[in-house]
Design a binder for these strands. Sequence first.
DNA 1: TCCTCTATAGAACGTTGTTCTCTAGTTGTG
DNA 2: CACAACTAGAGAACAACGTTCTATAGAGGA
Lengths: 198, 198
Amino acid sequence: MAGVRQDARTRTSSLEVTASLIDAALAILEEAGLPALTVRAVATRAGVAPMGVYSRFGNKDGLLEALFVHGFDTLEVAIETRSDANPLRRLSIGCLGYRQFAIDNPQLYHLMFEQMMLLELSPESREAAKRSFMILVDRVQDAMNSGDLTNGDSTEVAQELWSAMHGAVSLEIAGVHFAQDRAANFAAMINALIRGLG
Amino acid sequence: MAGVRQDARTRTSSLEVTASLIDAALAILEEAGLPALTVRAVATRAGVAPMGVYSRFGNKDGLLEALFVHGFDTLEVAIETRSDANPLRRLSIGCLGYRQFAIDNPQLYHLMFEQMMLLELSPESREAAKRSFMILVDRVQDAMNSGDLTNGDSTEVAQELWSAMHGAVSLEIAGVHFAQDRAANFAAMINALIRGLG
DNA sequence: TCCTCTATAGAACGTTGTTCTCTAGTTGTG
DNA sequence: CACAACTAGAGAACAACGTTCTATAGAGGA
């Protein structure tokens, strides 16, 4: 586990501290939620002084932005799918992976999209988010190329899919979802949308 | 305008204070954003001491919950539509009203769904949110009754629509939306979803 | 007109994000 | 191996936050 403090007032090996802080923040986030994610709590758990957060991330927002990037890097893996003879099936599997990521990391997922609203993200961070989106665009383009989706602007169609997925998992995570079976409702929505896109 | 302080240390008429606090909070929220929405700022703008927030709403979360209810009451009006010979058109118009509410009150919209995730809402508050949802359910049921939508569980279908709408406006408000024309992309998504639902 | 009660203005407290300072640890040089 | 210069971080300190406390101003009944 990261953040084992050897001794009071000992210099911790510098390379590991950044990772320790992010690990500590992720752990606190999922265990105790966003309000518990204080600079002091993260630093203590990582075995450093609060100052460590500022020397590495600038301020708390910088740490949150690091979590944002980490989240999208993880999401990128979650929606990646291996090649499939049926492009629509591959697309659907990626969508289910998207939902699974949100269900597995509800607090992180919420934080990722929260940040976009509240703080000004660097272009590099926004790029990390766009990488995940581009995977979706690729899957849509594949389905258009094979004739499984009506030809059109794959970015526009991918955006429609992303909007729908994001809304569904956001409401599910927030606990305001009136469907009986939320996984089934998610799948039904994706299927209806894909069917409607022709 | 609410919150005109007559004099230092004057008893303000009790009935108006609650409304003044909510008005002040809404104004600060849309003008300066969520971080600026402090108990002191709201109380000052409403012309009362911070204590006023606590005697009326319990704590800051209580004030936020009042904003939540106010938001859903306003949303309910925004998605309400007058009777229409074409049930699908009426449904679509309601959906556009939903988006317009979010675009017109981005900070409030964000806060409403933020609250659901972060704090435990009272059953009464949740009921206010559900009232808006039920309007959507009614429109879906109308379209099913007329044969414009395949018969099925109107709640499930309404949930799919709500998910999609919420995701689209959330991403649009957050500024992470890759479509050229966001209004058009929203309409295209709704149309595709309705088409896919049959 | 006085008394009682309620609501609240203003001060005070603990915790937060952030900054400052000083020292311990590291690194380069002989 | 010894010493000096530099760097990074530990811990204290600060402003602002949510919240609580207390003394008092105002309302209502006799």
